[in-house]
């Protein structure tokens, strides 16, 4: 794999530094949120993405700013990587007026930023398949050159919406890239117990599209395969299914004790940690500086969100109609 598909002139190392900065920022955000949930309790459900940040940031590093993103429910790495402001993301999580949804959030699910092409997420898993194909159709119709990237989990891959979207997207050669985060678990269901194929990507040939498997802990590798898939989509050659192999470090939601699971990750050690994988390539002092900056950024943004007011109840009646 080379970096020739990445859409700008930065060197590979510069990309790595930027990806590391984002991954480590998301990691601190994950830890800050976990701390908050454990200390304060929490009214919503936080679905941690810790350990999966590398693939999220890596894939999105291959996108252009104008490209469209439908993210999945594991954390906020996607939205942050696409350029959204951390305070707004924490604000959504904490149900604050500074959230991107103006206080309608609370939990992880519904960040959005029209400005950054972050189009949101459906609360019913797998609903993003058909929306993503539709947005890609709009790009094809308008000739705007944008590509839509849709994230989903191995569990959502079983939805019928995948079948309907994948067939239509492939037949029409829509500019969409599907990124499956296979962390092995759909809440309490093991992937291997619920999949007829060893890999999600094995299903791609039936839809007439390439299926690519990549090590999801290797952010640079994910960036490379995503860049190729995005190039292909932008050339009008249709969708690609990428399966990033990863691992669910925590429960389905923060607080899930996972009684169904025998392979629980203990302590803070993350196997094949994407932070370390990237960090190995950065000089120690530079890395420390990035870490310190990331930690400070997260703390400031979280404090700002915590200090922000709750929304007025009048928001209940806003935005039902345009």
């Amino acid at each position: 794999m080379t970096s020739t598909h990445v859409p700008d002139q930065r060197t590979r190392h510069e990309h790595l530094i930027e990806i590391y900065r984002k991954v480590v920022t998301v990691r601190f955000a994950e830890l800050r949120i976990r701390g908050h949930v454990e200390a304060e309790g929490f009214g919503g459900f936080w679905h941690p993405g810790i350990g999966q940040e590398g693939l999220q940031v890596g894939a999105i590093a291959a996108m252009q700013p104008a490209d469209y993103l439908y993210y999945a429910h594991r954390g906020l790495g996607y939205a942050y990587a696409k350029g959204m402001d951390l305070t707004a993301l924490f604000g959504d999580l904490l149900g604050r007026a500074v959230g991107s949804t103006g206080g309608k959030g609370g939990g992880t699910v519904h960040f959005a930023s029209a400005e950054h092409g972050v189009l949101g997420q459906g609360g019913t898993l797998g609903s993003n398949f058909v929306l993503g194909a539709g947005t890609a159709l709009a790009s094809q119709l308008l000739g705007d050159g944008r590509v839509t990237v849709v994230f989903f989990g191995d569990g959502a891959a079983a939805r019928g919406t995948w079948h309907e979207a994948a067939i239509q997207a492939s037949v029409w050669k829509l500019p969409v890239v599907w990124v499956c985060e296979n962390n092995g678990w759909a809440l309490s269901a093991r992937f291997e117990d619920q999949s007829p194929t060893p890999n999600v990507a094995d299903r791609a040939p039936a839809y007439g599209m390439p299926g690519v498997i990549v090590d999801g802990q290797d952010a640079m590798a994910v960036m490379d395969v995503t860049a190729q898939a995005i190039d292909r989509a932008r050339r009008g050659e249709g969708p690609t299914l990428i399966e990033a192999k990863t691992l669910r470090i925590r429960g389905h939601y923060e607080g899930d004790r996972q009684p169904y699971r025998q392979d629980q990750v203990q302590g803070d050690e993350i196997p094949n940690d994407p932070v370390h994988r990237l960090g190995e390539h950065i000089a120690v002092e530079e890395r420390r500086a990035i870490d310190a900056e990331a930690r400070r950024t997260v703390e400031e943004a979280f404090d700002a969100a915590l200090a922000a007011p709750r929304p007025d109840r009048s928001v209940i009646f806003e935005d039902v109609w345009a």
């Binding site: 058909v130 539709g134 309907e164």
Partner: peptide, 22 residues
């Protein structure tokens, strides 16, 4: 456009296409 038999795409795709400016 003629679609396949895929109502979730016809409506969900329309939702996505609206978000994309059509």
């Amino acid at each position: 456009r003629d679609t396949a038999i895929n109502e979730t795409f016809i409506v969900g795709g329309a939702a996505g296409a609206a978000l994309g400016g059509t």
